[in-house]
Amino acid sequence: MTTKQVSTVRRRRLGAELRRLREAAGMTLEDAAKILECSDSKISRIETGHIGIRTLDLRVLLARYGIEPGPRYDALLTLARESRMRGHWLQKFNDVLTDPFRDFIRLEEDVASMRSYEIQLVPGLLQTEDYARAVIEAGRVLWHSREEIDKFVALRMERQRVLTKEQPLHLWAILGEAALRCVVGGPEIMRAQLHRLLEVHHDLPHVAIQVLPFSAGPPAGIGGPFVILEFPDPVELDVVYLENLGSNLYIEDDDEIRRYQRAFDHLRSAALSPKDSASLIEKVAKEL
């Protein structure tokens, strides 16, 4: 795991919004630097998320950018405060977490909703403990010890609290049919996992599960799995998250995000309805 400090997504979201506000106010980097009596390179580093900004300085900039106290103003101050937070329950999992994935889990707790597309596996937030362990053990080349595997399984289970907290995460998950038919950990574990999906379908109205059947054919122009993170605050800077072996990527460009949003809408239209998806899940479980 890298020891280099990574710019958090919160900080990049705040910086991107400050850049937009500055440009909307018709100001240059030099103009903003004069306001804070600092170098224009410091303003650039704030806007690119490389460094944070003090709350006092943020209030000064917002006032000069014409942003008055209100929901948007408060949301930006909250972003600034949260980008400096260090204490977190994730600390006990530090030895099994990369910095980008730690950022993702923190964001998972902040977002109002999440849209997820998975091809061959059940999403982590919907996995049973036995299924999660089987998936994680399958990637044993990534781990150094049994203790690391146990910790990562525990981490995955703790993450699922976002679905049952007082203001739960709204999750819309689209699963490829292969995720139902790929027998992970053996028939008993897989059957229990499919039953878990049915329980979520019936018991958690804020979670929608759709299955993209084999009969729908390959999704045109859509590659691997992706997650769209949608935030509740008025800043409206959503994020797309892509995860591959050994790497994590955040997409924050507006045009690229809209492309993934359109892709998800295409998948949603091609997938079975939540009711028909539940019927297919039940059918596959009985076949095991």
Rank of each mutant, 00 (worst) to 15 (best):
G124H: 07
A154V: 01
R161G: 14
G124K: 01
R140K: 14
L155N: 06
Y131H: 08
P123D: 13
D150E: 08
I136P: 12
M157R: 15
W143E: 01
R156T: 07
S145Q: 06
R140S: 15
E147M: 00
E137D: 11
R156V: 07
R159F: 11
R133P: 09
A132M: 13
E147Q: 01
I136S: 03
D130R: 09
V162F: 14
V162D: 05
R146H: 08
D130L: 11
R146I: 01
A132R: 08
R159M: 15
P123E: 07
A132N: 08
K151G: 02
E129F: 05
R159E: 12
A138D: 12
E148S: 02
R133N: 11
E129T: 09
F152N: 02
R156Y: 11
A138G: 15
I149M: 03
E137N: 08
Y131T: 06
V141F: 06
R161W: 12
W143K: 01
V153P: 04
A138W: 15
Q160T: 12
E147P: 01
A134V: 09
D150I: 06
E147C: 00
E158T: 07
P123S: 09
V162Y: 08
E158V: 09
G124Q: 09
E148Q: 14
P123I: 09
E129S: 06
R161S: 15
I136G: 04
A154I: 01
L126T: 04
Y131L: 02
V153L: 02
R133D: 07
F152A: 06
A132C: 07
H144A: 06
L142C: 05
E137F: 05
R133V: 11
S145G: 06
E129R: 10
F152M: 07
H144T: 01
K151R: 10
D130V: 02
R140L: 08
G139W: 07
L125A: 09
R140N: 11
R133W: 05
Q127I: 14
G124A: 10
A138F: 15
E129C: 03
L142P: 00
M157A: 14
V135L: 15
V153E: 01
H144K: 04
A132P: 15
V141D: 10
P123C: 07
R133T: 10
G139F: 10
W143V: 01
R140Q: 15
R140P: 06
Q127M: 14
I149L: 00
L155W: 09
R156I: 03
R133L: 13
H144S: 04
E129Q: 14
V135F: 07
A138L: 10
L126W: 10
E158K: 14
R146C: 01
R156Q: 11
G139Q: 03
R161M: 14
A134C: 05
I149K: 03
V153F: 03
M157K: 14
R133I: 10
Y131V: 04
V141I: 12
P123Y: 07
A132F: 03
M157P: 06
G124Y: 04
W143S: 02
L125F: 05
V153C: 00
K151D: 09
I136E: 06
R156L: 08
D150M: 02
V141L: 00
Q127D: 11
M157D: 15
I136N: 03
S145V: 04
D150S: 07
L142Q: 11
Y131W: 08
